[in-house]
Design a protein around this nucleic acid. Structure first.
Length: 430
RNA sequence: GUGGGUAUAGUUCAGUGGCAGAACGCCAGACUGUGGCUCUGGAUGUCGUGGGUUCGACCCCCACUACCCACCCCA
């Protein structure tokens, strides 16, 4: 026999009953988004490779080594070959759609959310997959619509805290930072580079390398011996210009006022080039090394970088895979019960047809119903009913059909009653 | 891309250089209209793949593959 085909590395199947947990998170997100006036956008799963190169950044790990990219060969003389890429994140696609459909011309603030798979060709580990799922939201629009306001930053972060609460994740921490505008970051990068030149020889091998390639990454180092040196390096806050400083202060002021706990972490570094000003990350203790539950930030120059109008924005992406892991690590949250309310058991020859009518009618009345078949004895029906998780079992036999009175039994309590055909649904609802 | 760990029944896992195991689960019967208990019986399988050592390898050696964890990076 030929070798069976398996799911490719870094991909997986989400099976019942786990899929119920995924639906629970997705539903909670849609509910919260609705209340904050966010609306769903669905963008393509693959895009022109250039979209990600120009937004996420050519030099980032994501673009330089983690994308699934292929050449789409021309199929007619008139077609040109095009480099396509499975989306490694969704913000670029949303901003592309914003530009393409001239959403800025409406003058209205766009508040958009998405739910869907993303793809990065990384080595899989706990909480990290090659096909993974993100829920995200973006607020963007022309500055006249208020897109630049710190109120938007605070609103998004407040919404996330509410989402976490409603999903049932308790054990989280919020870290906040401002990376300033492009000029601020350039000056800070320069300052870091100079400061590191003197001390990097005393640091770990990774830091020595990062001091050259990407000084910001040094701040992320976890080697204990390096921490004192890192503490002595210049802080980003000292390099923010006045408008950026004020913006960040206002975000913090609002968050303080709504009573959200957070930590300013000047060492929090995010790996996408488009972030400006506010950046944030919610972390969770139950996730192993990949502790970031969700992350996001402001991207005031992204639209222009993609050839669009000025359209400041802020957004986030949360890792659905990691949300589910976090939920599973907090024992208080169980898998939602999706079992049927009733198991309809035909008893004896020729009862399948009668049972099918009853099951159809129950389902019409919004009762989740499982239907057996008449190859089973009564005992087998009970066993199948138990396995289905149904709370009730209904027997459909010759006696019942003749009398129009049905035996309805509560599988948990053992209580049994006789009910008329028309009353079955009512009994279940009561 | 680098490092470490693991690979035996549907699942969780024991195991020994000489017959392939347990628990749970599954199937059948006792028991063809009222179960959950019990009893009896049954099937669990390329011991990840390929090679080597050996009279003999699931076990020792080598290679490969897959999965897990970590680095890196991120959600």
């Amino acid at each position: 026999m030929a070798d069976p085909i398996k799911a490719v590395r870094g991909t997986r199947d989400i099976l019942p009953p786990d899929s119920a947990l995924w639906q629970h998170v997705e539903q909670a997100a849609r509910d919260v988004f609705q209340r904050y006036d966010f609306h769903e956008i669905r963008t393509p799963i693959f895009e022109d490779t250039q979209l990600f190169a120009r937004s996420v950044g050519e030099e980032t790990d994501i673009v330089s080594k983690e994308m699934f990219t292929w050449e789409d060969r021309p199929r007619a003389q008139s077609e040109k070959a095009q480099s396509l890429t499975l989306r490694p994140e969704n913000t670029a696609g949303v901003v592309r759609a914003y530009i393409e459909h001239k959403l800025g011309e409406t003058g209205k603030l766009q508040k958009l959310y998405y739910i869907g798979p993303q793809f990065r060709r990384e080595r899989p580990q706990k909480g990290r997959f090659r096909q993974f799922y993100q829920i995200g939201a973006e607020v963007l629009g022309p500055p006249s619509a208020g897109s630049e306001s710190p109120a938007r930053d605070a609103e998004i972060i407040t919404m996330l805290a509410q989402l976490l609460r409603e999903v049932g994740i308790r054990n989280w921490e919020l870290q906040l930072n401002s990376v300033g505008c492009a000029d601020d970051r350039a000056r800070y990068n320069q300052a870091l580079r100079e400061a590191l030149a003197g001390v990097k020889d005393k640091m770990c091998a990774d830091c020595r390398r990062r001091a050259e390639t990407n000084p910001l990454r040094v701040l992320d180092c976890k080697v204990p011996e390096d921490q004192r040196i890192i503490e002595s390096l210049p802080k980003i806050s000292a390099y923010l210009d006045e408008p950026c400083r004020e913006h960040f202060n206002e975000v913090r002021k609002i968050l303080n006022h709504v009573g959200l706990r957070y930590q300013v972490n000047e060492r929090m570094v995010r790996g996408l080039d488009y972030y400006t000003r506010t950046t944030f990350e919610f972390t969770h203790g139950g996730l192993g090394a990949q502790s970031a539950l969700l992350g996001g930030g402001r991207y005031d120059g992204l639209s222009e970088g993609l050839g669009g109008p000025k359209a400041p924005g802020i957004g986030f992406a949360l890792g659905l895979d990691r949300f589910v892991l976090a939920l599973q690590s907090e024992e208080t949250v169980g898998i939602p019960d999706q079992s049927p309310a009733i198991y309809v058991a035909p008893l004896g020859q020729g009862m399948n047809a009668e049972a099918a009518v009853i099951a159809r009618d129950l389902r019409k009345q919004q009762i989740a119903t499982e239907l057996g078949d008449d190859t089973f004895r009564a005992k087998k029906s009970f066993e199948a009913a138990e396995r289905s998780g149904a709370k009730f079992i209904l027997f459909v036999g010759e006696n019942e059909i003749a009398s129009e009175q049905f035996a309805l039994k509560n599988l948990k309590s053992g209580e049994q009653m006789t009910v008329a055909r028309a009353e079955i649904a009512n009994k279940l609802k009561s």
